[in-house]
Design a protein around this nucleic acid. Structure first.
Lengths: 137, 137
DNA sequence: CTGATTGCAAAAATTTTGCAAGCCT
DNA sequence: AGGCTTGCAAAATTTTTGCAATCAG
């Protein structure tokens, strides 16, 4: 479990508690596209006493300080991703499959945007929408 | 009201009805970051008899055929955007402000991704997360 | 005509809130 | 010790569903 994340919580003035550590651990382990219900289930495997509300409160807090970020890929509710280093994927609008890929040129835009808008960029999400190879026929 | 959108519905085998036209008109007019409740309200101004459920059903249908797309910018529920031509904005993780900008290099990546994955790209969403000029102090 | 579509209201699912008890620092 | 955090259960909100009536083609 990365000390870095814990330090970020502490730096932001939050207390380090077992429920929060459980959520963080879930996010860190398999932080791709998990919805609140899934996060609750997995966090309960680590710390059984954790309740629904705490998961929501923790996710909101983590979103606030930029550790995670909700995205919406067409399923029912939101899912959360670990923001580290940006995220890029393609979503098939026919079958809903999500394909991650590396190599993203978004970072090259960051400096430019900072210069133009004074906006300090921490992470990004780049989603392409279209048809996957399977669904193109 | 663009005939093009209507043609897309027709081509996909959907019937053209007043409730659907009302939603389309709302999307087309101010299709930026509207949530289902807002869309309902505005659609009711055009076609008063429209119900909640129809808005949800229509949005799902429009998502299916790629006219709109749900995104999640940190507010409570999802909001919908018109997919035409891609979308790019910055979201401040402190105050939540959303700043749109033009000039996006994502289109340049599209061909490359198509070549590598056989994925046919129709639109994209590029979101940057960070701190706006106001919140940087 | 005929099946897709709609509005309504009820049901389901998801998220938020109030509060006393408990824990981190 | 003091205040942030928590879990619980209830409340609020959001989304989905069933169905008879209606409408588009």
């Amino acid at each position: 479990m990365s000390t870095q994340l814990i330090d970020r919580l502490r730096a932001a003035g939050y207390k380090i508690t077992p429920p929060r550590l459980a959520v963080l651990q879930v996010i860190e382990q398999e932080g791709e596209h998990l919805n609140p219900a899934e996060i609750l289930t997995r966090a309960q495997a680590i710390y059984p006493a954790i309740g629904r509300a705490t998961v929501y409160r923790t996710l909101e807090m983590l979103t606030q300080i930029g550790v995670v970020r909700p995205i919406y890929v067409g399923e029912h509710g939101p899912t959360y991703i670990h923001t580290e280093g940006g995220h890029h994927h393609m979503v098939c609008s026919s079958c809903g499959v999500v394909i991650d890929f590396e190599q993203c040129i978004a970072d090259q835009m960051a400096q430019d945007l900072t210069d133009r808008f004074g906006f300090q960029i921490k992470s990004h999400l780049l989603e392409f929408y279209g048809l996957c190879a399977q669904c193109r026929n």
